[in-house]
Amino acid sequence: MDPFPAFRRRFRKEAQMKLTKLAVIALLGLALPLSAEEKGSDTKGKFYFKKSCKTCHVKGGSALELTPLSKTQAQWRKVFDAGRHGKAGEGFSPKFGTPEQIRDIKTFLINHASDSPQPETCGG
């Protein structure tokens, strides 16, 4: 039984659509600095963070456990702006989401970073 039919439906549709565009946008999008950082969607950022990041960044996962509180705003900015993601610092490849989604994630993490005015853990 599929517990999340609607979610899958939409997500798949969205993903397919985005993937076709991705080939075009990907290089361009990643090359551009994510200048409109906090303008992304907080709500969606939380969702994509859980969806894309928490698959690895959990306790006992393949990567270090992360919540927005794990870093300060400046540190998060660095991670995203300098493309510090990954051991080799290879940044966020399309497998983690569209540039829009990455931007949402960034917004979420910065808005609720450890030194932010509205700090929050992922679950909170």
């Binding site: 609607a6 969606k44 969702f47 859980k50 969806k51 306790k59």
Partner: peptide, 15 residues
């Protein structure tokens, strides 16, 4: 302290 629990993933809406 908190007891960890999972979270149900529902579709996010626009801000």
């Amino acid at each position: 302290q908190k007891v960890p629990k999972g979270e149900f993933m529902f579709l996010p809406w626009d801000d």
